[in-house]
Amino acid sequence: MRLLRNPSLVAGFVMVGGVVALAAMGPLLAPHSPSAIIDAPYMPTGPRTLLGSDNLGRDVLSRFLWGGANLVWMAFGATFIALTLGAAVGISAAYFKGWTDEVLMRVVDLKMAFPSLVFVLLFVTMLGTSLPLLVLLCGLSLMPGAARVLRGAALAVVDKDFVQWARSVELPAHRILFREILPNITSPLLVETGLRLMWSISLLAGLSYLGYGIQPPTSDWGLMIYENRNALRVQPLAVVCPILAIAVFAIGGNLIAEGFARAFRQTR
C-alpha cells in the first residue's frame, strides 16, 4: 500500500484507467451509431449532436465513444507481446551468454535500426491490413527496447549464487529463466510496461492516421484525426477529443513507468 502514496503511480493509473473505462463503456453510452449520418458535415454543437458533426455529418460524440475500443485493446495486446518476447529474449541472452547472446542481441539491434513505423508499414503493405496482424507487428517492433533493458537487468541476476545453485542441481533451463531469474527483475519489467503502453498507442494511432490501421467506416481515434484534420478551425472538437484521449493514455503510461521506477529506487 506504500505504492498508493506514490503520486506519479496513482495519477498514471487514474489516467490509463480512465481511458480504458472510456473505451470499454463508450459504445454503451453512445447516443447514435458511429456510422449513422445525423446532420450536415462539420456542424457545431447542436441539439442532436452534443459535440457537433464530422466530415460526413456523423455524430462526433458517438464516434469518439466508439473509437477507443479497438485502439486501447490493441495497445495492451501489443504491449503484452513486446514484453513477453522481450523478457524471453533478454533473459535468455543474459543467461546463456556466448553465441546465444550474440545472435539474439544482433537480431534485436538489426530490428532497432528500422524505425517502428517503417517496419510495420513494410509488412502491412505486403500482407494487407488486419487487426491481429497489426497487434503482432506492433508488439514485434516494440520488443527490442524491452529485450535490451531486461537483458541488462537479468545480467545482474544470472551470476548470483541462487542461479548457480539451480544450474548445479540441473534444474531445467526454462525453470531457471522464468522461476528463478524473472521474479528478480519485476521492477524493470513494470517500468517497461508503462513505457511500452505509451509507445504502442502512439504507434497504433499513427498507423490509423496514415490509413493503414482500422478501416472506415469503423470509428477510431487515429482515423478521426485524419478524417477531420481539414476542418480544424470549423469543427475542432472532432480532432481535439481523440488527441486528448490518446495523450492522456500515453502520459498515463509514462507516469506509471516513472512511478514504478521511483518506488523501486526507494526500496533499494
Binding site: 548470483k160 549464487d161 541462487f162 548457480q164 545453485w165 548445479s168 528463478e180 521474479p183 528478480n184 519485476t186
Partner: peptide
C-alpha cells in the same frame, strides 16, 4: 554444493 554467501544462494523473491 553449499555457497559461501548465504544471502546470495537463496532466491530473495
Amino acid at each position: 554444493y553449499i555457497f559461501q554467501d548465504p544471502s546470495g544462494s537463496l532466491n530473495p523473491r
